[in-house]
Computed example of a mutant assay.
Amino acid sequence: MAAGPASLQFELSVHTWDDCPDELRQLRHDVFVDEQKVPPDLEWDETDAVAEHFLVRNASGAAIAAARLFADGEDGRIGRMAVSHKYRGSGAGLWLLRKLMSHGCSAYRHFVLSAQAYAIPFYQRAGFLVCSEPYQDAGIPHRSMRCTAAMLVLNQPAETEVPLHLEQDTTSWQLQSHADWNGAIDALASQARQRFWLYEPKLDGSRYNREFLRDALSMLARRSRYSEVRFIVAEDKSLVEHHHRLTDLIRRLPSHVQLRVLNAELPEPSSSFALADAAGVAYRHEAPLPRGFANFNAPGRVRSLEDEFQRLWSSGKRSPELRSMLL
């Protein structure tokens, strides 16, 4: 039991499709079929049988909100978010969304969903980022959205309507785990429009040899002739030995994706950091450890770290390991 806005009390239950209460099915029918005119054969699909179904009741036991969650590759896909008409604006929908994300955090890499256009600000408040152009689904305008750092948003209250949004969110997010770091890096990389710079002594697999990050940086590198993806590392041998995904980017897009190795004659910085465009930064105080911070609108901090990165880049050298691989 948890309190919602205006002293409302919400209660959550989780079901398989076989044991779904009739009220959950009726709520979806009321919202999607009756209200939004979605054809019944589109509303009820085979995914219901494999999804987890979430139902919110009010203090009187009435069903007021519902949603479903199922695996989509490594991600958790949220769908069929329905809130009873008279409870819209009560906080029940956001309460359900956050509970659903908390429930699935340990099982999924990111959360993804298809948002009706009018509902985009609602999902943005929970840390979701728009990641597609508009499209039609059942005759209704939609856009795809993704949350890469659910635990950050769930665990750290932030006074912003747009958490994790580049050039908008001024929150200083405290990073406590490698999952926090990965989520912040993914949010920065997927929103960058011109530049992503990373200094990391070692591009270890759990943090950087990931398909989503490679694809996000590939999209950035192809965006324009001015795009820059740059890595500075202290150790490059493992990149080739372990067939790192980022080496494939360097091989295919050498004009836009580049890597240099630290000058061994200079002191190695103890920190690690990433910069996205002119506003986004993720920073770890001691490179092997996960603790640090991320800020998506900190141009002053970015400028100071730009100077540090440029110094390391100018004194660095091309990777002999990668050069031999590319020949």
Rank of each mutant, 00 (worst) to 15 (best):
N209Y: 10
H242L: 05
H243E: 06
R214P: 09
D215F: 06
E235R: 03
L213K: 04
E211Y: 11
Y208I: 05
A234I: 11
A234S: 15
Y226K: 14
S238Q: 03
D236R: 03
E211L: 12
Y208R: 11
T247P: 06
G205S: 12
R214S: 13
Y208F: 14
S227M: 06
E241R: 06
V229R: 04
E241F: 01
V233D: 01
S218Y: 04
S218A: 12
L246K: 04
L246M: 13
E211D: 14
S218G: 08
H244F: 10
R207V: 00
I232A: 15
A234P: 11
L220G: 07
R214D: 08
R214W: 04
F212E: 00
H243G: 09
R225Q: 15
K237A: 00
D236Q: 03
S224C: 05
D215C: 10
F231W: 07
S238P: 00
R225C: 10
R225Y: 06
A221Q: 12
F212H: 07
A216F: 12
R245W: 06
S218D: 08
A216P: 13
A221V: 12
H242N: 09
L246A: 07
K237T: 00
F231P: 03
A216L: 14
E241Q: 06
Y226Q: 13
A216Q: 15
R214E: 13
H242Y: 06
L217P: 08
G205K: 11
E228A: 07
F212Y: 08
V233N: 04
S206M: 06
R207I: 00
V240F: 07
D215K: 15
N209Q: 14
R223F: 05
S206A: 05
D236G: 05
N209I: 08
D236K: 05
F231L: 12
L239G: 00
L213V: 08
R245C: 09
R214K: 14
S238N: 00
V240L: 09
N209W: 12
L239S: 00
G205L: 02
V233Q: 01
H244S: 08
A216R: 12
V233F: 03
E235W: 01
L217M: 12
L246H: 09
R223P: 07
R210G: 03
A221M: 11
G205H: 08
R225V: 09
L239Q: 02
I232P: 12
H243V: 07
L213T: 02
A234Q: 10
K237N: 02
Y226A: 14
R230A: 15
